[in-house]
Design a protein around this nucleic acid. Structure first.
Length: 814
RNA sequence: GCCAGGGUGGCGGAAUUGGUAGACGCAGUGGACUCAAAAUCCACCGGUGGCAACACUGUGGGGGUUCGACUCCCCCCCCUGGUACCA
């Protein structure tokens, strides 16, 4: 590669220039410019360093940030580190190296790699979730939640591995064995912290409406929240002074309820099971409990269950229906009990068929001898009236019958309208060392939150991090840290050994970026008002549900407390697609298809890397890496350099004449195209336009200064180093970063003549060069003259002639 | 199963409100330069037929609407992501 342009010299020069001059420092509360807050999902600094997927999103946000600055915005574009997490802890257990030390190393690597790409972050705002000065405020937010009654403790089963003496995350358990060592894992109930996210379910759902997010991500969140409306119906137990509530979305099918099912964990089972059935019910419960230890997917294979010997009374027709127990009913949803309507529910149908239970049709329109009829739209109610005829929904559409039945249930005191959510409360504690300590004390009977002045509660330095053996986190080994003696009363308290999950730090980092050095409070309210909401948030789709839902939840709590001014944190969200390996597969070490960004930068430079990642295809789509594809954009930059820079390093002579008409049109068209593509994050087509424009300029014998300046300005967001260098070579003394974006003139886009296609029966037969807005008659006359048009019309009659001005002519003949 | 997104040359991908399918780039072929190669530059480049002009055909498959469909409607197939007995 003899003539390649000196990218490494140029890139290090400008990176140093930007850093020395703090070119990208964001100014708080600036009034004379509109603000624009553009955020990346900050990375977990793993030991393996950056992979090419990271810079895809970062390049996209950087391009927008640089573009917005040129458009006159005050841009906040920060970066930080989500550095708590399991890998560092595992590494510590294996090697004895403290997570804090390893984390610092990893961050240094990530930072060096990110900086080598020339991103325009305001590094003065860098934050790190493992920093005491940061997690002090994570703990403070936890206390806000606690004081608001949104944090509580509960016994929840965890994956306990006796051999390792530790609790495992779900992803560390494979087929009931520990991922490391293959030891047996059992479910063990432990005291856990929960956050009451369910209290915000409705608002998390409703407020999605106003957000500029892709419909698919909104849908994923909606499905996760899983709101369903229906009724709670009360069933009395025959011969006992007990009753059971069930939740159903189909109260219209109440007359078709032929049995009832309880979840194996349902507390009523002990009360209602008749003596004859106790043995089999207990056996089933044990079986079900063990089953949940196995892979859950096995459960779907077929329905199992046993009869309890008890009967319930169907409140609409007083029919006695048997009560069964089966694990297809989940204790964690609804009331843990269902009314089964086999004729109109696929699962109930399967169960009834397996155990020979009666199937009663109450909605006509299907064939219940074959399968459950679940269509709610096309069908009419049948067999649905009380014995005395006082209440009947026969002949109604199910949708109507649902409402009528609920009204009747409420009037007769047999049930009520009800709403259920799939969303569960958030299991917030982890039995880990490397996380934010939960700032509470225990005295054996109650839990006492720390006061704000006791924060941060820092992690104790341990000689060696090892499992406690009890299932508690390694913090249980830190005896001195664990015990707190009240100096006045002498009373002894114990610290909480659970820590927060990795989600905690990332739930509010976007707020800390606003005011990262504030020691008095988490952030300043004025600055928050100025910068929020985040205008554009870009990151991977893997966080589409949990991170975004948790962060939105915290944000709403903070909103209720008056600490933030917007209901939602992230106004516009875009998920970048995955970059696949050359083989079209997900990049992974085991496949050996990982591309190292350091290598790419070394060989081609940061500008080429940035340009290529954006040129590959639409941001949101997954696309495979192609090493020879990168050569293409590299050649583009090389050609640009070689054509305009002489061997001695000076710029070629530019013409100060007005560009010719064609160049002028193309220049304005390019501004328009690049600008609208940037507004739509369509980087690939914008780059294509830059190539077209630059190819044109290379064909000119004399290059007009104005045209080259425009090209360099348009290129700047994408390839800022080479752009700044060319800009400086053109004699400009100030940075291009804040230079005003060129304006296009719509008038310049209008050309005198235009090429129109002429079709005969929909097939293109000729091209006409006509004046813009030429008369229809004139165009048709020209078309008729054309040799090949004539040929295809010969001997036929004209049926119809269509002229779309400036576009197309179609002559229909027969 | 359900929800969402997608299927266009050898490859990545372009195509305003339906209006010349394949922009831009890669790979490939031919040529220039070179002792030679690399790099660079020029030309060609969906398929079939033809020396060529040109003709036919072509956007996952089938049908429809229209003067005209990658684009709109119906049915089907395949791929990716999410979710999974949520009553």
């Amino acid at each position: 590669m003899a003539d390649r342009y000196p990218f490494s010299k140029i890139e290090s020069k400008w990176q140093k220039h930007w850093a020395d001059n703090k070119t990208f420092k964001a100014i708080d509360n600036l009034k004379d410019k509109p603000k624009y807050y553009i955020l990346d999902m900050f990375p977990y600094p793993s030991g393996s360093g950056l992979h090419v997927g990271h810079p895809e999103g970062y390049t996209a946000t950087d391009i927008v940030a640089r573009y917005k600055r040129m458009r006159g915005f005050n841009v906040l574009h920060p970066m930080g580190w989500d550095a708590f997490g399991l890998p560092a802890e595992q590494y510590a257990i294996e090697t004895g190296i403290a997570p804090s030390i390893k984390t610092v190393e990893n961050i240094a690597t990530f930072k060096r790699q990110i900086q080598s790409l020339g991103f325009s972050y305001d590094w003065d705002r860098e934050i790190n979730t493992t920093d005491e000065a940061y997690y002090k405020w994570t703990q403070w937010i936890f206390l806000q939640l606690y004081n608001k009654g949104l944090a509580y403790q509960s016994e929840v089963a965890v994956n306990w591995c006796p051999a390792l003496g530790t609790v495992l995350a779900n992803e560390e358990v494979i087929n009931g064995k520990s991922e490391r060592g293959g030891h047996p894992v059992v479910r063990k109930p432990m005291r856990q912290w929960m956050l009451k996210i369910t209290a915000y379910a409705d608002r998390l759902l409703e407020d999605l409406e106003g957000l500029d997010w892709s419909e698919s991500i909104k849908d994923m969140q909606r499905n996760w929240i899983g709101k369903s409306e229906g009724a709670e119906v009360n069933f009395r137990i025959a011969d006992q002074d007990l009753s059971l509530d069930v939740f159903t979305t189909r109260p219209d099918t109440l007359f078709g309820a032929t049995y009832m099912v309880l979840a194996p964990e349902h507390p009523y089972l002990e009360k209602i099971t008749t003596p004859d059935y106790v043995a089999q019910v207990n056996a089933y419960r044990v079986l079900a409990e063990r089953k949940s230890d196995l892979d859950r997917t096995d459960l779907a294979k077929g329905k199992t269950g046993v009869f309890t010997g008890a009967y319930a009374i169907n409140p609409v027709n007083d029919t006695l229906i048997p009560i069964w127990v089966s694990d297809y009913v989940l204790m964690s949803y609804g009331t843990g009990a269902i009314m089964a309507v086999p004729a109109h529910d696929t699962r109930d149908y399967e169960f009834a068929t397996a155990f020979d239970l009666p199937i009663q049709e109450v909605v006509s329109g299907g064939d219940i001898t074959k399968e459950a009829f679940t269509q709610i739209e096309d069908g009419l109610m049948i067999n649905s009236s009380t014995k005395d005829g006082q209440f009947s929904i026969n002949g109604m559409k199910p949708s109507k019958a649902i409402q009528v039945t609920i009204d009747w249930l409420e009037e007769s005191g047999k049930g009520k309208r009800a709403i259920n959510y799939k969303l569960r409360d958030w299991l917030f504690s982890r039995q880990r060392y490397w996380g934010e300590p939960i700032p509470v004390l225990h005295d054996g009977t109650s839990t006492i939150p720390l006061s704000d002045s006791d924060l941060p509660l820092t992690l104790p330095v341990l000689d060696r991090i090892k499992p406690s053996g009890t299932g508690e986190s390694p913090l249980a080994n830190a005896k001195e840290w664990l015990q707190v003696v009240d100096p006045s009363s002498g009373k002894v308290y114990t610290r909480e050994t659970n820590t927060m999950p990795q989600w905690a730090g990332s739930c509010w980092y976007y707020l800390r970026f606003i005011d990262p050095d504030n020691h008095e409070r988490a952030w300043d309210l004025e600055k928050e008002k100025y910068w929020m909401p985040v205008d554009l948030y870009i990151g991977g789709a893997e966080h589409a549900v949990l991170h975004l839902l948790y962060a939105r939840f915290w944000h709403k709590v903070l909103y209720d407390l008056g600490y933030v001014s917007t209901k939602e944190p992230f106004q516009k969200l875009v998920n970048q697609g995955m970059i696949l390996g050359m083989d079209g597969e997900k990049m992974s070490k085991s496949r050996g298809n990982v591309i190292n960004p350091d290598e790419v930068v070394k060989q081609y430079g940061a500008d080429t890397m940035r340009l290529y990642e954006m040129f590959m295809g639409p941001l949101e789509r997954s696309k495979p890496w192609n090493t020879s594809g990168i050569e293409g954009v590299y050649r583009f930059l090389n050609r640009l350099w070689r054509h305009f820079v002489k061997d001695d390093g000076g710029l070629i002579a530019l013409s100060d004449e007005e560009p010719d008409a064609e160049t002028m049109t193309m220049m304005h068209a390019s501004i328009k195209k690049v600008q609208s593509d940037l507004d739509n994050l369509a980087f690939n087509t914008a780059i294509s336009q830059l190539m077209v424009f630059s190819n044109h300029l290379r064909e000119l014998s004399e290059v007009p200064r104005q045209a080259l300046e425009t090209l360099v300005m348009l290129l700047n967001p994408f390839a800022p180093h080479i752009s700044e260098e060319l800009w400086a070579l053109m004699g400009n003394e100030t940075t291009l970063a804040y230079h005003v974006w060129p304006e296009y003139d719509e008038k310049m886009l209008v050309r005198d003549t235009i090429t129109m296609a002429v079709q005969v029966n929909g097939k293109v037969r000729a091209q006409l060069e006509v004046e813009v807005d030429a008369e229809k008659e004139h165009v048709l006359a020209m078309a008729h003259e054309h040799v090949s048009v004539k040929q295809h019309m010969e001997g036929k009659t004209i049926v119809k002639e269509i002229v779309v001005p400036n576009r197309i002519v179609n002559i229909v003949v027969r």
